[in-house]
C-alpha cells in the first residue's frame, strides 16, 4: 500500500528556486530542471486551463443580483466599455445620489449644483437624463408589476423561490429571491408579483388564487430580506483581519475586505 501523500518509492525531486518560480508562474522550466518536474508542470498547466462550460454556469443568477443592486433600466443603456472610459474613476454611489438630486431640482439650482460637482457626476447626470424614466424604481412599483407577471416565467420564479425558501441553502434562497425581485421590479413587489402569477397556460385572471389586495406590497411579511443570507456576525474567522465579513451598507464603508491593496490605498 503506497503512501500517497509522500511516496517513498522514488526520490522526491528537488526543486530549485528558478524551477519553483517557473512552476508557480506557469512559465517554461529552466533548461537545468530535472525531468521529473515535467509532469508537474503539465498538471499545473491544467489547473490554469481554459474554462470548461460548467465553470461558466450560474452567470445569469449573479447578473440578476447585480441588476437588482444597480438597477436594470439604467444599466441596459450603458454603452460598452471603451477607451474613453479608461481614465475614469469609479463613480461612487454617493455621487450617483448627488446626480439624482441635481436632476430633481430646477434649472437654476441645477446649474449651481452642477458647477460644484465633479465631472463624473455631470456625465452621470447626463447619462441618466438621457435614459427613459430615470426615477424608474417608483414607476416599477406594484401597479406595473402586475402586467409583468406573465404566465410561465413568473410562476416559475415564484415557485422556485417558495421551494428555495422551504428547502434551499442560503445561497439558493438568496439567488432565487434576487432573481424573483429583479423580475418583479423590486423586493417590495414580490408579494404582489407572485399573487398574480399563473401557471403556464393560464392567464392571471384565471388564476386560482384570490386577486391581491391593492396595497399588499407595503410590508411583504414573511419575506426575508434578500441580502440576509450570509450570517457572518459572531463568527470570527481564524485569521481574522479585523473586518466583518458582510457589510450590509457597502457604499458607506468603502471597505469590502480587510485586505488593503498595495497600490491604491486612498479612498
Amino acid at each position: 500500500m503506497p503512501n500517497f501523500l509522500w511516496p517513498g518509492h522514488r526520490d522526491v525531486p528537488m526543486i530549485g528556486d528558478t524551477s519553483l518560480a517557473a512552476l508557480l508562474a506557469g512559465t517554461e522550466l529552466p533548461p537545468g530542471a530535472v525531468s521529473e518536474l515535467r509532469p508537474l508542470a503539465e498538471a499545473l498547466a491544467e489547473l490554469r486551463a481554459r474554462p470548461a462550460s460548467d465553470e461558466l454556469e450560474g452567470e445569469a443568477e449573479t447578473l440578476a443580483a447585480f441588476r437588482d443592486q444597480f438597477g436594470a433600466p439604467r444599466m441596459a443603456r450603458r454603452p460598452p466599455v471603451g477607451k474613453a472610459r479608461s481614465r475614469r474613476r469609479p463613480l461612487p454611489v454617493k455621487a450617483a445620489a448627488a446626480a439624482a438630486a441635481v436632476l430633481s431640482l430646477g434649472g437654476i439650482a441645477t446649474a449651481a449644483y452642477a458647477g460644484a460637482l465633479p465631472a463624473t457626476v455631470q456625465r452621470f447626470a447626463h447619462d441618466i437624463a438621457g435614459a427613459p424614466a430615470p426615477g424608474s424604481q417608483p414607476a416599477l412599483a406594484p401597479a406595473s408589476a402586475h402586467p409583468a407577471a406573465t404566465g410561465g416565467r413568473a410562476y416559475g420564479l415564484c415557485t422556485a423561490w417558495a421551494h428555495a425558501k422551504a428547502h434551499g441553502t442560503a445561497a439558493q434562497r438568496a439567488v432565487a429571491f434576487s432573481t424573483l425581485a429583479a423580475a418583479a421590479g423590486g423586493a417590495g413587489n414580490v408579494t404582489a408579483y407572485c399573487a398574480t402569477a399563473a401557471p403556464p397556460g393560464m392567464s392571471p385572471s384565471q388564476s386560482p388564487q384570490p386577486s391581491p389586495a391593492p396595497h399588499a406590497t407595503g410590508k411583504p411579511s414573511g419575506l426575508p430580506a434578500p441580502h440576509a443570507s450570509g450570517k457572518p456576525t459572531g463568527l470570527p474567522s481564524p485569521h481574522g483581519t479585523g473586518a466583518p465579513t458582510v457589510r450590509p451598507t457597502p457604499h458607506s464603508t468603502g471597505k469590502p475586505s480587510g485586505l488593503p491593496t498595495p497600490r491604491h490605498s486612498g479612498h
Binding site: A174, G230, G254, P256
Partner: peptide, 18 residues
C-alpha cells in the same frame, strides 16, 4: 461561489483596487 458573488455584488461599489 454563488454566495461569494452575491456578497461581491453588494460590496462592488465600495471596492477600490487594481
Amino acid at each position: 461561489a454563488a454566495e461569494t458573488w452575491l456578497q461581491v455584488v453588494r460590496g462592488l461599489a465600495g471596492f477600490r483596487g487594481d
